[in-house]
Nucleic acid binder design. Sequence first.
DNA 1: ATCGAACTGTAAACTAGCCGACAATAAGCA
DNA 2: TGCTTATTGTCGGCTAGTTTACAGTTCGAT
Lengths: 225, 225
Amino acid sequence: MYEDLKYWYLRDHKLFRTLSFAQIRQLCIITGFKKANKGEIIYFSSSDVPRIFLLKKGNIKIVAVDEEGNETIKDIIQKGDLFGELTLENDFESNEYAKVLSDDVVICSFLMSDFEDLLLKNPSLALSYTKFVGLKMKRIKNSYANLVSKDAKTRLYQFLKDWAEKEGKQEGNKITLENYLTQTDIAQIICTSRQTATQLLNEMESRGMLLYNRREIIITDVTQL
Amino acid sequence: MYEDLKYWYLRDHKLFRTLSFAQIRQLCIITGFKKANKGEIIYFSSSDVPRIFLLKKGNIKIVAVDEEGNETIKDIIQKGDLFGELTLENDFESNEYAKVLSDDVVICSFLMSDFEDLLLKNPSLALSYTKFVGLKMKRIKNSYANLVSKDAKTRLYQFLKDWAEKEGKQEGNKITLENYLTQTDIAQIICTSRQTATQLLNEMESRGMLLYNRREIIITDVTQL
DNA sequence: ATCGAACTGTAAACTAGCCGACAATAAGCA
DNA sequence: TGCTTATTGTCGGCTAGTTTACAGTTCGAT
């Protein structure tokens, strides 16, 4: 089951490897670069021309706002990830924005239409991209299944395990994570209330499974998750 | 299987509309054809060569079984839908099978590798396919958001509305649905217990919003959902 | 027609986790 | 440095929904 996880995280870097230097350059001419700092909010507004974004540096979260003004975290985007309208369909009514989590980020973007042209000219890239989107779907499906059948504690454990696997610095069974999320963020990701998340984290800390603070999370023994 | 039959099967699928007559004829990628009856279970086993399936007639549900033997409904597949490894990645250890819901179904299939070749030769098809998968992803995301923020009643209403929209025969505000699902199925789809689903359905019936029986569901006034 | 299996109906006990409220820290910043 | 704001900690009360348990109903099959 968890074998799947491993290759999800190989995500998009692979995507452009099939391209030649020249091709990438061609794509890059189209791109816009943008720098932003912690806390900043970036709208990839629907009024604009549809774009696809690539996060070069840092971490951001994608937040959706529903009719009642409730905010939900849709995704955490990391260095090297693509985001935006990956389905290549214009989504008019999505109320999403990105919020910068790390100290500074660098984002570049290209026009969806240009990307489509590129895919049409590079069948093998098109295929890789198709698989990439498929992978993304599988990931969503999985967290869905997780949410449906497991309780909050299990979801938190799973989330920490995934996170550790993705970004943790491992020394033996001890794993250190740079913590750019608040407990509220974590709660939203695992779909529970902030209070419950806090409670669970403290419970873990008092059991010696964890060391939590605003800068880092140290998981003393991954195998316990 | 006869060539012209294959041709027709592909031709009337949305996905292949971008292709010309001649192109479709060349493909001939359909390699399997299968009929099945109600209640039958179809394994699209991982031990076999990976395939993509196309449901030509009827309804089936995709069921996943986890380690503890719990069954969850992953998807309801309807006439014209593709299913199987749409991500174009082999998923070895997924414990999924399909169960036939309607009286009889017709399924045809093609090899994933053949389909990949086809995509490589037809970038525009690859693009459509990506959008197609993207659409599927968007639907999943939607039901996900629905599950997270809404209570069981709202989820049931939403489910009925979606179902009505997809398959209902409408007369004014009255909508008739052919009911090939049990209450247990419905409960699983909206992620609640069977009892809760039963209760909610009965409540709706007693309020005159609904007429439920094993063969059909009549929604007396859609606007109330 | 009868039997058994699958489906539907109902109710009581129980519980995970939400919500509101408020206190205690920590972090940013003037 | 002190002030303000964001984040974390904690506690009951509350409720939607689960679980267990059993009874009634429908349907297909022999």
